[in-house]
Amino acid sequence: MYDRLSIRQKQIVWAWAFLAVPILFYVVIRFYPTANAMVISFQNWNLLGDRTWAGWANYAKLWNDPVFWKVFRNTFAYLLIGTPVSLVISFVIAYHLDRLRFMHGFLRMLYFLPFMTTAVAMAWVWRWFYQPVPIGLFNNFLATTGIPQVEFLRSTTLALPAILAPAVWAGLGFQIIIFMAGLRAIPRSYYEAARIDGVSTWTILWEITIPLLRPTIVFIVVFSSIGFLRIFDHVYNMTTNDPGGPLNSTKPLVLMIYQSAFTDFNMGYAAAQTVVLFLILLIVSLVQLRILRDN
């Protein structure tokens, strides 16, 4: 049977044989659970008893849950503050690091180090930095200078940026490396031509560097957006006493999903939130790809 196939057909058979492995893997590990989650979102299930059909009840509950809308706003706050801030900082660092020869490798290593650190360890160290007197680093410093202490994590307005800061810092290393690779990929001849024409540095940056970095920027924006929309480790570890608190002011959608599923054991409600998160991620990614690719 196999012998009678043509070479081309044999190639196809082999291609499918190799492709079957990742396809099977994806079906079992990704697609089946995803489809199952969508089914559970229309059911009531507490992990112990039977699953019963709930219709749209979980989605209706979500729509009417003030905590969900608060969490929805928080999630976008992480995205809308985190992505541009990290993009600008990482570009500025990469741009200058690219021109630096002195201790270049060492500095690049320093910037990349936080990216390799586990989020949990980092979150706990920052959590202690933010504590009030007598153990918090920042507040101890403020106290010695006589400035009243700041309740970083016990404030409904400051807690979110305070948690976002180490998350941005942790992602910088990766973005800097990508930006530097992008900068190196721009042909030198463009810069030489511009310099011969006597163009200012500022113009070179706006007219050559940034436009040619577009693919890099698209990649980083999409990547870091997805990261901020899925933020969890930093928030959970910095607020374990009152997860997502105070008063839900730092709770992102993923943490709400986690709590619905594994502290309330309300699997249907958690699955409904997961479907919503999936749709948000899908829409945000598609919109970004469109905007940043077209014009």
Binding site: R154, S155, T156, G245, P246, L247, N248, T263, D264
Partner: peptide, 20 residues
């Protein structure tokens, strides 16, 4: 009925008094 959720409501009660 759900100890952690019921505890959370009292945590929030105190936060509203203390922070807000």
């Amino acid at each position: 009925a759900n100890e952690s959720a019921q505890r959370q409501l009292l945590i929030d009660m105190v936060q509203r008094i203390d922070i807000e």
